[in-house]
Each structure stands twice: as structure tokens, then as C-alpha cells.
Simulated assay, not measured.
Amino acid sequence: MAYPQWLDPYDAEPFILFSTSHLWAIGLIAALIILMFLFKSWLRSSSSNTRRTIRITMACVMFGCEIVLQLWYVYGDVWSMQTSLPLELCSLSLLLSALLLLTRSRLLHSALLFAGIAGALMAIVTPNLGYAYAHFRFIQFFTAHACIILALFYMTWVEQLRPSWRSVLGSMIFVNVAALVVYGVDVLLDANYMFLRHKPDTPSVLDMLGPYPLYILGEEVLAVVMFSLMYVLLFAIPQRLNNRVKRGKSSAL
């Protein structure tokens, strides 16, 4: 069967780490995050119907990312139980973040905030991806991971689900419970979801964490450090500075 080049699962231009297209994708995602931060007050002050429409639209895009991926697997005759189920950390984060947009669940927000953002960021910087721009898989991959980050920041900055140190704990619990369940599936299917049985074939952060199974323990330490730093740098310090500004304005009046 002949496939269009942008859909071909077998004969496509390979992805090159930090190529021009990869750097453009990183830059575009960074720009979207910055724009959301700059316009967070405007979005927050918009009507509840507008915010609801934004949440539903984002959720539909996120569910759509997974649906079209599964359809592509089937179309390309590459779907398999060992590689195609949505059991990677970012796949789980994508679907649950979409659910978070629809439910505004504080429990989901706490579980996903740091795990979802950190996992998506690492995937964006060191993608486990075999297709270069403008292949469908390249576009779907970066769209899905960008949506995870934007959805979680949206729920924090606009919908004002405030994180705390409990969110760091919640994300660690989520990652470990997910890993435990997925490892059972890996053993059952002889698969390697979440890279719990060996490292990916493409370059990744795991290469710096030692051989199997030591890199899994390294991931645990890295996750605690990353989640804690993210909370302090992105939320705790800005909130403290904001409170000082407000107190200064109040005393001036």
C-alpha cells in the first residue's frame, strides 16, 4: 500500500534532535506558554461561558490528538498491544488533563500538575520520535505535549486551582501508582510502556541516570527535585512576591 509521505509510517524523513524544525517547535511552545501567562488576568476576567468554551475546546483538541494517533496506527497497519496503547506517562497525562479541563477537579490538578508539565517538557526537549517535520506524527506529538502544559497552566493561572506542597506529593503518588499499574501491563504484554523495562532507543534524559534498573531510582530522585523546584520557582516565589506587592499597595493607601 502506498502512503502519502506525510502519513507514511515506514519511509519518512527521520527526526533529528535539535534540528531547525525541533527548535522551532520548542520556541513556538515556549511562546504559547508566555502568551498564556501574559494574558492570564484577561482570561481570568472573561465570562464563565467564555472560559468554559476555552476549556471544552482544549479538551476536544487533546482527546482528538489521541484519537487521530490511534487511527493513524490502524491506517498504517502499525497498531499493536505492545506499543500503541495510551499507557505512556504523557499519554495518561494528556487524557487526564483533558478530563481535568472538563471537571475542574482539584484532585486531578494536584496529581497531574508537576508530573504532566515535567514529563511533557522532557518529551519536548528529548522526543522519543522517529518522524521529522512535516510528518503527521511530528505535528501530533508536539501538539499533544504542548496541550498538556497549556492545559495545566490554564487551570492554575486562569481557573485558579492553587498548587501547594501537597501537589508535589500528589504528583509523586500519581507517577508511582501509574508506574506500578503500567509495569504490570508491560510484563503481561511483554511491552515497555513508560520505559519501565529498558531505556528508549532514542537519546533521552534516562541516559544520564545509569543502567537498568538503577535509572528508575534515578527517575524517582529526579522527579522529586524537579517537582519541588517547579513549585518553588513557578508558584511559591511568584505568589510571595505578589503578596508583598499587595501589602505594599495597601500600606501606601
Rank of each mutant, 00 (worst) to 15 (best):
D8L: 11
E13N: 14
E13C: 12
F15P: 00
T20W: 06
I26R: 05
I26N: 06
I29K: 03
A31D: 02
I34C: 07
L43K: 08
L43C: 12
S48M: 01
T53Q: 13
T53K: 12
I56G: 00
I56H: 02
E66G: 07
G76H: 12
M81A: 13
T83I: 14
L85H: 08
P86W: 00
L87P: 11
L89S: 14
S91T: 06
L94R: 04
S105H: 05
H109V: 00
H109N: 04
L112R: 03
G119M: 09
A120Q: 05
M122N: 05
A123P: 04
I124Q: 10
I124F: 09
V125I: 15
T126C: 09
G130V: 07
H135E: 09
R137W: 01
T143R: 04
H145S: 11
C147R: 03
I149H: 02
I149V: 11
L152Y: 03
L152V: 12
F153T: 07
E159W: 06
L161C: 03
S164R: 06
R166C: 03
V168Q: 01
L169Q: 06
F174R: 09
F174S: 06
F174A: 12
V177K: 00
V182P: 02
V185T: 04
D186I: 07
D186A: 01
D186G: 05
V187Q: 13
M194E: 03
M194S: 08
F195C: 06
H198M: 12
K199E: 03
T202F: 15
L209Y: 02
P211S: 04
E219V: 12
V224R: 02
S228F: 11
F235S: 02
V245N: 08
K246I: 15
K246Y: 04
